[in-house]
Amino acid sequence: MKDGKCTCACNENVSESELFERLDKVLLEYQDKPGGLIPILQYAQAIFGFLPENVLKYVSTKLNKSYSEVAGVVSFYSFFSTHPRGKYLIRVCLGTACYVRGGKEILDAVKKELKIEVGETTPDRLFSLEIGRCFGACGLAPVLLINENVHRRAKPSKIAEILGAYKGGTGDEQ
């Protein structure tokens, strides 16, 4: 964490208790800091891939906050997810610039290609779909983000091709 290394567990086989050990380290660093809840939740999501109920209840107990309060913060920010996400998280920007340049059509194309709605994950756990509210790349609109990769000036007709590369394992090279 401090050294900037991602602690995401998606590619490793680790036990739940080990994940909780990692969470404990995060808690140790942040639990006494004012406003510590949000960074703790961010790391927790990185560690577990999403924010399951038992993790949130654990965090709420450790921080001496009610579960409802923690849930209130989690449900306020679209960044947080309480459902397992796919290997690739697609975020289609619907900020103003992307919207006027056809972001909605990009979103529809992704939905059609993957047969999922916003907030859902494909049955093979490969893709999850979310909408974004501006990634600061308005000059490149419309934009979609797949994990950390920015796909600029996207066209609905190219969506199948872009996603196909991820299915084939070469998405990150695009």
Binding site: K65, S66, Y67, S68, E69, A71, G72, S75, F76
Partner: peptide, 8 residues
């Protein structure tokens, strides 16, 4: 703390 605003 049983009641808290949920969502946005």
């Amino acid at each position: 703390g049983s009641l808290f605003p949920q969502g946005r």
